[in-house]
Nucleic acid binder design. Structure first.
Lengths: 258, 258
DNA sequence: ATTTCATTGCGTCGGCGAGACACAACTGGG
DNA sequence: CCCAGTTGTGTCTCGCCGACGCAATGAAAT
């Protein structure tokens, strides 16, 4: 077993660089092929998956820390990010993972006092990204980085399953107040795509015709030309968001529930 | 100037007891005489007011820390508490307050490393309490503890003004999903009281008759006998919540917006 | 006792949104 | 050229919501 110099450097510098006992975790959502996806990491030597996370520099805004994690993992700069919950259970941390890592890499540590072996309180953020613009990259600690369908998830580490559920709940509550559709869909999209996105987030089916009437009623969409590229049957119109009207409408909240 | 032994004891023990760089702040709401109130503290030697706050024991759940702060400040045990936002600006802390306190009390400290002079990230909670059940008590650091009308607030410390605004926004968004009315009103209340509560939270006036129709439509209230005690003009009915139906309805969310 | 009058309880009316559903138009494949 | 599955548009009904009318109440004024 050879030591990983990146990990060794990270673990030596971290205590001086980062806030103690605090982390951020990002639930990264995207939408592709009519399915809501979430980006998960698999750590070396661990079976379970986790949300990308990171630590907070000593003089860094927590939001900036989340933005930085996202940039490192997706390559994306200007992402929609929203803080949604703090996970503060005293026993949520799994220190064995880090201890094993340090042992494998020959790092010497004091079990009782080492920075990374403390209890961590984590701030949950969710991110909305456009699937096609992302090239997921694993980080120092991780082996794979992969999109998972929201309905077919693998076993997850620690409390990361709960974190995902909370993020989904928050997303549902925010859907009328934040530009969810705009950030998850490509610039141009069809009505069925937008509908499937809503259905995935809300976890229920909607009537196609009523959905269209309601969404168009908000006056936040611009209709473009037809799309024909290899679609079976009748080709649907393409739409894009009318950003000015969209953001104006979101300030008040889109009327009506789902 | 005499030293305050409680403060000295607190500041000596704190670094070993509490999580570093992390705190909780509680925005405590109540409702009295048709007005939404907030409980604020005035610290010794400071002009500005603040929300009651505290620190997190090393093995304590963040929610329990907030509950503890609340218990100490209001004497109340079972309070509705809701985490609503994390305030993570790197420069939000005002260390001068604590430094002055230490100097006044003759506590020796290292400015660069002392636990309380670090940057603190705070988790905001709001609490809903019944006005009549509370006997506010100041804490070790504070001089006064007082209810303030939400529309006539004093100057506040650090970012505590923003914290209050965020709490109010959260309260507005949660009003159809959490037992806001139940926790802020006495067991028995009148329809005008309930309406004024909603108006205070939402920041706008509602039509008396439509409000009554809508609320009664939820089927979450039980109508009791008349009240006569020294009310001018026609005495209104008294209501109480039908807890079973109330909680059932809240799970789905009360339908319709405000 | 009677009058006063702000407040409260209950009702009406019109409009609009939401759910359920019908039907015509389109387009690629056989 | 027809078929099949999908999309665009419209209809109908019901219930909710905002705006508002009106009678009943009961402490205070006379």
């Amino acid at each position: 077993m050879t030591a990983n110099p990146d990990f060794v450097k990270f673990i030596e510098e971290a205590p001086g660089q980062f806030m103690p006992s605090m982390s951020v975790d990002c639930v990264i959502f995207s939408f592709h092929e009519y399915e809501l996806k979430v980006l998960l990491l698999k750590i070396h030597f661990e079976q379970k998956w986790s949300h990308p996370g990171g630590f907070i520099f000593k003089h860094e805004h927590t939001n900036d820390a989340a933005t930085r994690v996202l940039k490192e993992r997706t390559g994306l700069d200007k992402v929609f990010l929203q803080q949604f919950h703090v996970f503060g259970e005293p026993d949520r941390s799994d220190t064995a993972i880090h201890e094993n890592n340090m042992i494998r890499n020959g790092v010497r540590y004091n079990r009782a006092t080492h920075w990374i072996l403390q209890r961590f309180i984590t701030i949950g953020y969710y991110a909305l990204v456009e699937f096609s613009e992302v090239s997921p990259l694993p980080d120092v600690l991780s082996e794979y980085c992969q999109w998972w369908n929201i309905n077919q998830l693998p076993a997850m580490m620690m409390d990361h399953g709960q974190i995902l559920q909370k993020a989904l709940e928050a997303l549902r509550l925010h859907i009328n107040y934040h530009p969810v559709g705009y950030n998850l869909l490509p610039k141009k999209f069809t009505m069925p795509e937008l509908q499937k996105l809503y259905e995935s987030i809300l976890g229920k089916n909607l009537d196609r015709r009523n959905f269209q009437r309601k969404i168009l009623g908000y006056q936040i969409l611009k209709r473009l030309k037809d799309k024909k590229k290899g679609v079976a049957y009748k080709s649907p119109y393409l739409y894009s968001f009318d950003l000015r009207k969209y953001h104006k409408a979101l300030k008040e909240g889109l009327k009506g529930g789902w």
